[in-house]
Every structure is written in structure tokens, then in C-alpha cells.
């Protein structure tokens, strides 16, 4: 039981990272029905941006006291801004022209973008994993039999807070309303005076900025980053978004946590489970898409013709 509870914590903190990436996936899919395959790589890019900022600030280890808040704020905001702008740039250069093309064209482009980003990062920071300063102290909290690191709490809390903030933004603001309208019917929204290009760019800005934040958090949490991280993390985050119901903000978070839990539990309870986690997660992806393509919280929508 103690082990089970500990694995629950492990799963939730791993899932928190997936959830943060999944939010961006789901937003973009919700509005232009594009599987933005490059999203996982924007997340990795976020960790490299954050690393560059930290290096610039001269941070190489843990930071204490008020300086910690300053360092974290500056780094997170810079990583979010850079990733957000990268996202907007990708949309402008690669996806906008293909908005009315056959559906597979932008998906193929997105895969291409993903390969380009990975290689740019490889050229920038080399092919081996790069170590990342731990920045935030990680005191272990003992809750009865289970140990929770401060960073694990940070990951989980950030995912939940971001999800609520995003919900508020989309359902309580004018811009959010414009996004929902664009998602529902792009042509009608345009007729109502909504600037479609700006709205879609905004979606990419927010989604990619979230990936940037996730990149910083994962860098601090794991203490390392690697140009190829985004491929697998992105794929699992996409699985999370699909599991929760793609296009659904709360679903993305739920899916992220569930995928994290599935991984942790598979590791613990399948004999030699560590080597089977990817097979298990991708089997979940396949099964969900086949048996419940709308996901846990999504509504079943007929395909637009």
C-alpha cells in the first residue's frame, strides 16, 4: 500500500509534465484541428531557452531566498515568451498557408517542423543530454509512509493552476470567446468580425508558451535536457490529450495525469515493467482512438465534411 501511494505521487508528477504539454496540443487541435506534431519539440526548446537564460544569469545550482523568486520568474517568462513566439512563427511560416489544404498536408508539415526543430536543437546544444541547474531547492516532505519532493508538488500544482487559468481565459474573456467562435465555425466567426489570423496566432502563442513553461519545469525537475526529449514526451502528451478528449482543456489535464499513473503503475506491477511502459502507453493510445475516439471528456462530433 505504501508503495502504491508512492507510485501515485510518482505517476502524478510525471503526468503533470504530460498535462502541461497536452494543454497546448489540445488548444491547437481544438481550434484548427491540426495535430501539431512539433509541439513536443517546442517543449524541449523551452528547456533550452530556459537553460540559456539561467546561464546568462550565472545560475548553476540551487538558489535561495528572494533571489529564487526572481530567477524563476525571469526564466519562466523568458522561456514562455520565446516559445510562444516560436509557435507563432511556425504557424505563420508553415501552417497558415495550408489551412485549406487537404488535412494530411499540414500534418505532414508538422512532422517536418518537428524534425527541423530537433535538428536545430541538436546543432545548438549537441547530441548528448545537457545538464540543467537544479535552481529550486528540493526538500523532501514526509507524509506518513510516502516521500514527496518539493519539485514534484510544483509540477502537479503548476499543471492544475495552468489548466484553471486556461479555462478562465477561454470561457471568461473576449479573446477566449473569439477562440471558441473560431473553433466552432471559422467562416461564420470571420463574418462576425473576428480576426481569424490573430485568433489562431494567439492560440499558438498561448499553447507554445505553456510548452515553454513545461520545458523549464522539466529541466529543473530532471536536472537534464536532451534535444530528442520532445519526441516521446510529445507523443505521450498527445496520447494524454486524446485520452482526455482532444480539444477539451480539463480532459488534457486529466489525460496527462492518467498517462503518468499508467506508466508508474505499469513499472511497479508488471514483472520487468520498466521496458514495457512505452508499449503500454501506446497501446492505450491505439485502444482509445479505436474504441472511444472522443476520449473520456470529449463529445463525439461528426466529421466535418
Amino acid at each position: 500500500m505504501d508503495v502504491f501511494l508512492q507510485q501515485l505521487v510518482n505517476g502524478l508528477s510525471l503526468g503533470g509534465i504530460y498535462a502541461l504539454i497536452a494543454l497546448g496540443y489540445t488548444m491547437v487541435y481544438g481550434i484548427i484541428e491540426l495535430i501539431n506534431f512539433a509541439h513536443g519539440d517546442v517543449y524541449t526548446l523551452g528547456s533550452f531557452f530556459a537553460l540559456a537564460v539561467l546561464t546568462g544569469l550565472g545560475v548553476s545550482g540551487e538558489v535561495h531566498g528572494p533571489a529564487l523568486i526572481g530567477v524563476v520568474l525571469v526564466t519562466v517568462l523568458a522561456a514562455m515568451l520565446c516559445c510562444g513566439l516560436t509557435g507563432v512563427l511556425i504557424e505563420r511560416l508553415a501552417y497558415r498557408r495550408l489551412r485549406n489544404a487537404p488535412r494530411l498536408a499540414p500534418l505532414i508539415t508538422a512532422i517536418g517542423m518537428s524534425f527541423i526543430l530537433e535538428n536545430v536543437m541538436q546543432l545548438w546544444r549537441g547530441p548528448s543530454p545537457v545538464s540543467f541547474p537544479s535552481v529550486i531547492p528540493n526538500p523532501i516532505v514526509h507524509l506518513g509512509p510516502i516521500d514527496i519532493g518539493a519539485k514534484q508538488i510544483l509540477v502537479i500544482v503548476t499543471a492544475v493552476v495552468m489548466m484553471f487559468a486556461l479555462q478562465l481565459f477561454i470561457y471568461r474573456t473576449r479573446l477566449g470567446k473569439a477562440m471558441r467562435a473560431t473553433a466552432q465555425d471559422r467562416d461564420a466567426a470571420q463574418l462576425m468580425g473576428i480576426d481569424i489570423n490573430t485568433t489562431i496566432a494567439l492560440t499558438f502563442l498561448i499553447g507554445s508558451a505553456l510548452a515553454g513553461a513545461a520545458g523549464f519545469i522539466s529541466g529543473v525537475y530532471y536536472g537534464t535536457t536532451w534535444f530528442f526529449n520532445g519526441f516521446e514526451a510529445g507523443l505521450k502528451a498527445f496520447t494524454a490529450a486524446v485520452l482526455g478528449g482532444i480539444g477539451n482543456i480539463a480532459g488534457a489535464m486529466l489525460g496527462g495525469f492518467l498517462i503518468g499513473l499508467i506508466e508508474a503503475m505499469a513499472t511497479q506491477y508488471i514483472p520487468q515493467g520498466a521496458q514495457w511502459t512505452n508499449v503500454v502507453v501506446f497501446s492505450v493510445l491505439v485502444l482509445v482512438l479505436i474504441f472511444r475516439p472522443s476520449g473520456l471528456l470529449g463529445e463525439s462530433l461528426p466529421e466535418k465534411v
Binding site: L14, F228, N229, F231, T267, Q268, A274, Q275, N278
Partner: peptide, 14 residues
């Protein structure tokens, strides 16, 4: 281990 895996907390807990 899985190739490319980065989170070993679950395995280490086990």
C-alpha cells in the same frame, strides 16, 4: 530501461 526514457522515479521506488 526504455530508450530515451528520463523519469526513473517509478522504477526506483520499485
Amino acid at each position: 530501461l526504455n530508450k530515451g526514457q528520463g523519469d526513473f522515479k517509478a522504477l526506483l521506488t520499485k
